[in-house]
Design a binder for these strands. Structure first.
Length: 487
DNA sequence: TTAGGGTTAG
């Protein structure tokens, strides 16, 4: 009897391509794409949509996102699924601006977005830290009556929290009729980022009381909340409770939170002991947390030793060199610092340039250190000078040990004044009415000097300044910061 | 009976 050969049909490929997406192997995906063409399913919109999604999920070589865009651009007919797949793809690889631009194109083309599209667009706003844009998306959802399901509400909570308006995030959470563990996690994590640990703990307790079983992710948010608010004893208690009361085995992220918690509290030695006694291997993130604490709390020799070991294990990770360079700067050991710089140059590594973003009148402005590209550049630098004078009159001392260059103090001060954060604040002071809140978003952590300067500026100019840095928020008000100088 | 989405340390 002849064996009947089964041929793939148009329902087969979405399955297979989805599996490829899960594996994330570009070459495998390409070969399935070849098969799609061979069997004549290259014009099926459903198959094309999954191809776009598959390529968006693939790494390797030059990355799959450009292949995805090629398939997407060549589609004869596209629907909201195609656009969502492509927009979501950009978000996943961190290309939030491209995601937003594609959404604008979608509107011009007249393709109607649905709730899934809007979730990705909100994630893009979150990635950029663009609150005004996020608010616009929210009003669009209301106006166009996009179905507001749990996922979309969760995306809104996350967006508001990570774009700086955690009160709005909390209110939204309160108004939800149906919540799931992600909703709770988003609001707890959001409060954590803003240093509102006591409230985060209260929300967690409320969650448990209401019968929702915590998972490992919500514990990351909870422990990070304790860490950012200096609640060391509470944090230790919850860490033990994970295993004891909820049978959750702590993962490296939970250990990371504990190390961070001890470090922020200045308990560097205890943190080191904790790391040495951990039942799982510490990863580079844990070591870097410890190293940064060594620098901040003056344990410079210990920090140097750990960093040297880390560089031996991870020689191509640039932030390790930056950490070591920061330690030498604090030791005022310019010779060793220069050698680190040279080692980085030889390996072709560069420090990531710091940048600061600010939204004004529906535009996004970005500043880098020493930026002269802005039309208002002259006024901005005049404003920076004026700010410097006012701050000094109020008692501000530039933190010149932060500057990683072997130059004299006056030049160091000039370098500090050109930090992107100060340029963005000057720009905001020039262009917004007195008393208005200033929101800025940084790609790196805020430096000691900008942190100190922001406190002075909030008082002198009577402005609340909300800064999102790489890890968390700082709310500067009347000369104080919500992080209570733990960061 | 197929395709796109939300939370995760520093």
């Amino acid at each position: 009897m002849l064996e009947r050969k089964k041929l793939p049909n148009k329902f087969t490929y979405p399955f297979v391509l989805k599996a490829c997406a899960g594996i994330g192997n570009l070459n495998l995906g390409k070969s399935v794409h070849g098969s799609v063409m061979k069997f004549g399913f290259g014009d099926e919109v459903n198959v094309q949509n999954t191809l776009v999604h598959m390529y968006c999920c693939c790494r390797g070589g030059e990355g799959g996102i450009e292949f995805a865009r090629k398939v997407f651009d060549e589609m004869y007919k596209s629907d909201s699924v195609s656009w969502s797949a492509m927009i979501g793809g950009y978000v996943r690889v961190g290309r939030s601006s491209d995601a937003i631009n594609l959404f604008r194109e979608m509107q011009i083309k007249g393709v109607c977005p649905d709730e899934i599209t809007m979730v990705s667009v909100l994630s893009a706003c979150t990635g950029l830290g663009a609150l005004e844009l996020g608010k616009w998306v929210e009003s669009y959802v209301e106006k166009e009556r996009v179905q507001k399901n749990v996922e979309l509400s969760n995306a809104l909570i996350d967006m508001f929290a990570k774009c700086g308006d955690v009160d709005k995030a909390t209110n939204l959470f309160r108004s939800m009729r149906e919540r799931n563990i992600v909703s709770w996690t988003s609001v707890i994590g959001g409060l954590a980022m803003h240093g509102r640990g006591v409230e985060a703990v209260a929300v967690f307790e409320e969650m448990v009381r209401s019968g929702v079983t915590p998972d490992d992710v919500v514990f990351i948010g909870l422990l990070s909340a304790c860490s950012h608010s200096g609640l060391v004893d509470k944090g230790k208690g919850y860490f033990d409770s994970m295993r004891k009361d909820f049978s959750i085995v702590p993962k490296i992220e939970h250990y990371g939170c504990m190390v961070d918690m001890l470090c922020r509290a200045g308990l560097v030695k205890e943190a080191l002991k904790f790391v040495q006694e951990m039942p799982i291997d510490p990863n580079p993130v844990v070591w870097r947390t410890l190293i940064n604490a060594c620098r901040a709390h003056g344990e410079l020799k210990l920090g140097e030793k750990i960093t040297r070991q880390l560089i031996r294990n991870e020689p191509m990770h640039e932030s390790n060199y930056v950490l070591l360079s920061n330690i030498y700067a604090k030791m005022s050991d310019w010779e060793k610092k220069t050698r680190i710089r040279e080692a980085m140059d030889m390996k072709g590594m560069k420090k990531i340039p710091g940048s600061t973003m600010i939204e004004l009148d529906n535009e996004i402005y970005e500043f880098v250190a020493g930026d002269k590209s802005h039309a208002q550049s002259k006024e901005i630098y005049e404003m920076v000078d004026e700010m410097g004078k006012e701050m000094k009159r109020a008692g501000y001392m530039p933190t010149t040990t932060e500057v990683l260059l072997d130059i004299d103090d006056e030049d160091k001060e000039d370098t500090l004044n050109r930090h992107s954060e100060k340029l963005a604040i000057a720009f905001a002071l020039l262009n917004t009415p007195p008393g208005t809140l200033i929101r800025i978003v940084k790609n790196l952590r805020v430096c000691d000097d900008c942190h100190s300067a922001s406190k002075f500026i909030s008082k002198i100019y009577n402005r609340e300044i909300v800064v999102r840095d790489r890890n968390r928020f700082h709310h500067f008000k009347n000369g104080l910061c919500s992080c209570r100088d733990f960061w």
